[in-house]
């Protein structure tokens, strides 16, 4: 159990009266890549946003149950602290348009008003961009605006921004759905490298991507966690009929 980083216990999410995530129990180990897949509207993104308490920002959204991060319930902690501790990368690349590439990487510190020395900042920027496999491409244009980069580069910049906060866990909400195939493969390649230091939870509706990048896969359907197993196992011999149907394309 020592290996567990995130654990959901009877976790439920609602939009008003709409029950979108139903009684989820899941336990995720350190340095794992978890893919969360399922058809549109199955609650996978809502579940992900429940982990770092982004869900509650939507008016009318509530949740019940526990999400344990290193054994501590995030709903008993300060939401701001939880979000600072868990990295998140969104569907569309969203670098801050008013900040340069450099400033974007250290945005988590800048915006929180945390003062860092120039040397510390330089070190964080280089380290994070290197981890995000972007350093070589942008090291000569660090002070240009982040929005001048290509979509794939922007998304890797957003990953660098998340890494810069030194999280243990990074959440990805369909991180490649707005990217072209080449940018997608650059981001996917990055997942393999990040695995050494971080735990990744990746929501995707792309089954091939789930199969390519993850160690274990969770399948959500109609708000329920139907199956959670080794990726290989799930794609070759799913236990549940609904998973079988999804993988073989009976419904999408």
């Amino acid at each position: 159990m020592e290996n567990t980083i995130v654990k959901a216990e009877n976790y439920n999410s609602y939009f008003g009266d709409n029950h979108v995530v139903k009684d989820v129990n899941i336990s995720i180990h350190k340095n794992e890549v978890i893919a969360v897949m399922g058809p549109s509207g199955c609650g996978k993104t809502t579940f992900l946003r429940g982990i770092n308490r982004m869900h509650e920002l939507i008016p009318g959204a509530t949740s019940k149950g526990k999400i344990l991060l290193d054994g501590e319930n995030v709903y008993d902690m300060n939401a701001i602290y939880v979000r600072a501790k868990i990295g998140m990368v969104f569907q569309r690349p969203n670098p801050f348009p008013n900040l340069s590439i450099y400033e974007n990487v250290v945005a988590g510190y800048l915006l929180n008003g945390i003062k860092l020395s120039k040397a510390d900042k330089d070190a964080i920027v280089e380290k994070s961009l290197t981890s995000a496999a972007l350093w070589k491409e942008v090291k000569d244009s660090l002070h240009k605006k982040g929005t001048f980069l290509s979509g794939g580069q922007q998304q890797r910049l957003c990953i660098a921004r998340a890494i810069a906060m030194q999280p243990e866990l990074i959440l990805f909400d369909e991180p490649t759905s707005a990217l072209d195939p080449i940018s997608t493969s650059s981001v996917e390649a990055l997942f393999h490298e990040l695995k050494a230091n971080y735990t990744l939870i990746i929501v995707t509706h792309n089954m091939q991507q789930a199969a390519r990048v993850s160690d274990r896969t969770a399948f959500f359907y109609m708000g329920e966690l139907v199956e959670f197993d080794d990726t290989k196992q799930m794609f070759t011999a799913p236990r549940d009929q609904r998973t079988q149907n999804y993988i073989t394309g009976r419904f999408s």
Partner: peptide
């Protein structure tokens, strides 16, 4: 776009700081 606000919030930036540091400069 909402994604801008979410990006800042997901970094653990408190709401009033998101307004002052991100929303206002972008809409300047």
């Amino acid at each position: 776009p909402d994604s801008l606000k979410e990006a800042a919030l997901s970094l653990g930036v408190p709401y009033h700081r998101v307004i002052i540091k991100v929303i206002i400069p972008c809409g300047f």
